[in-house]
């Protein structure tokens, strides 16, 4: 609030001067005199308001049963995607790891060979781990990926019972995508 906003009727807002013990109560500023009837009306208005709220439906959601809808671009846990022929998209370029502001992604790449072809490119991710305790779900990895291999899905209930379980390995990340995420990616068209 600037000083200009505080001015009422051209008068600058100054603190109320201290009142001596024999000066009495100054007149009510707005010309309204306090009265018993007005006070009781005010109390009744309050009671009416709360009674109205009492008979209105609750605004809270009962969480484990009802969940609030999430945006289709919600950034929850990660998924690694595959092509339709089953090959992994990830080419082990480590751009996601480089983009990650907290350094929670570990990629160790290996060469594809004709006997062991994992991804269509030259290399693939032999190890792909995300430390979910460190991840801040910023989605930079998804932006950085040149082949749209990594996406952030909708799940946010990720609690678990040990720290080790929060290191998401490649097997876990390669789980099939939820259909709505797949639909969102399809609508963006191939890249």
């Amino acid at each position: 609030m600037s000083d200009e906003d505080r001015e009422v009727d051209g008068k600058p807002d100054q603190p109320t001067p201290l009142r001596g013990p024999d000066e009495g109560v100054p007149p009510h500023p707005e010309g309204k005199r306090p009265s018993v009837a007005a006070d009781i009306t005010a109390l009744a208005t309050g009671l009416k308001t709360t009674l109205g709220e009492f008979f209105s439906p609750a605004v809270t959601l009962e969480y484990p049963e009802d969940k609030s809808p999430r945006s289709e671009r919600y950034r929850g846990r990660h998924y690694l995607r595959r092509y339709e022929n089953g090959l992994e998209r990830c080419i082990g370029c480590e751009l996601c790891a480089a983009a990650c502001p907290v350094g929670c992604i570990l990629v160790i790449a290996a060469e594809n060979t004709d006997e062991n072809r994992v991804s269509p490119g030259e290399r693939y991710a032999k190890t792909y781990e995300i430390n979910m305790l460190r991840c801040i779900f910023c989605g930079y990895c998804e932006d950085a990926c040149p082949v749209q291999a990594i996406v952030l899905g909708p799940e946010y209930e990720l609690s678990d019972t040990s720290r080790e379980k929060f290191i998401y390995t490649k097997e876990k990340l390669l789980e099939p995508l939820p259909p709505d995420v797949q639909a969102r990616l399809d609508s963006k068209g191939p890249k």
């Binding site: 709360t50 709220e53 009492f54 008979f55 209105s56 439906p57 609750a58 605004v59 809270t60 009962e62």
Partner: peptide
């Protein structure tokens, strides 16, 4: 429960 409903929430359930 009644206080909950006054505050538009269900209270213990």
């Amino acid at each position: 429960v009644a206080l909950g409903h006054i505050q538009r929430r269900p209270g213990p359930n």
